[in-house]
Amino acid sequence: MQVHYRLLEQDPDFRLRQAELEQRVNERLMAGAAGLRGSVTTIPAVVHVVYRTSDEKVAAAQVKSQLAALNKDYRATNPDRSSVPPVWLGLVTDARVQFALATRDPTGKKTAGIVYVPTTLGSFPADDSVKAKATGGADGWPSDRYLNVWVCTLADGLLGYAQFPGGPPKTDGVVVLNRAFGTTGTATAPFDLGRSATHEIGHWLNLRHVWSDTEDCTGSDFVADTPTQQHPNYGQPRFPHVSCHNGPNGDMFMNYMDYVDDDAMFMFTAQQVVRMQASLDGPRSSIGK
């Protein structure tokens, strides 16, 4: 059984919260409602840089470059959105979310929003170990008030992983590979435009992959304005890439929730934004303002 679904089995409250959130999303989609939040929500983020070598100690400028990239992508002001194929340009949607490094820590003390934590470990598998001091990582800050972002060297070349809303608080947040974080410093092509964090935070705001995590065309990403798609796309696909009888326009591989290179993903859709805003009004209602 898959990890996500096993977690749902082990944590009945997580299952309940996910079901409630899906109900909320469906009501929103039916009613076309915009949500409870004001025009734009600003989410305080804390970046835990877990490092062993000097290269892994990502500089503040690199962290800030990541925040800048996120704020373009989540406000649909990224200049490369003009590369969206004309047929989908009308779906490009401002998520009405922006991110700012936390200015106060959980005790109220001033902070730069970046925490440097040394480790003796060469890399972290995708098992949440980077999220606790006891396992060589860094403890998160309260997830009802902060977006926790862990930046480290991940095992097996993984670029990042996330947790959906409503899950265990101690592991809530996103993890991003240091060499795929931000747009400067150690960020390395083809993952040097900050889109790994854009993708992971999409999951943190309850977005699913555009291929629905099934490879037989039967799944759904629970939004109606992304085409059904068979597989993840990688690299820099050429439009159109048809699968699941989704011609003539094919897969929306330029969506942030596909697996293409950073310079090939440019957009969230209107219904993806409904899902994200529903999570901000539901299980994430205490975060940001």
């Binding site: 898959q2 990890v3 996500h4 995708a126 992983y161 996330a162 993708h199 999951h203 995590d213």
Partner: peptide, 12 residues
Amino acid sequence: ARPGPTDRSEGA
């Protein structure tokens, strides 16, 4: 194994 819904590898 393949990427799961939140990008962790998931086995079957």
